[in-house]
């Protein structure tokens, strides 16, 4: 069974209001030495045992559904098989 983890992040130059909000809240916890917070999403996909072309299919899923390539980038990691 192949397990694929897709990490989707806003491209580095795109504003991340959510990350900014977390950054702004950190001083309230007494944490003052953080300069940037970026928030993305992690998607775990489990393929059937006999699945073929796992990487290729994962790339299609990530590119066409999970990420918005105009403003987001993604990375794939394939675990086990």
């Amino acid at each position: 069974m192949a397990r694929v983890v897709v990490d989707v992040m806003l491209k580095s130059e795109i504003l991340d209001p959510q990350g900014e909000a977390v950054l702004g809240a950190l001083p309230r916890l007494g944490v003052n030495d953080v300069s940037s917070v970026r928030i993305g999403k992690r998607v775990e996909i489990e393929f059937d045992e006999n699945a073929q072309n796992v990487e290729e299919q994962s790339r299609v899923i990530a590119d066409q559904l999970l990420a918005n390539p105009v403003i987001e980038s993604f990375s794939l990691s394939i675990e086990g098989s």
Partner: peptide, 10 residues
């Protein structure tokens, strides 16, 4: 091409 012409607002 990491310089899109897209802006994200808040």
């Amino acid at each position: 091409d990491a310089r899109p012409s897209v802006q994200v607002g808040d």
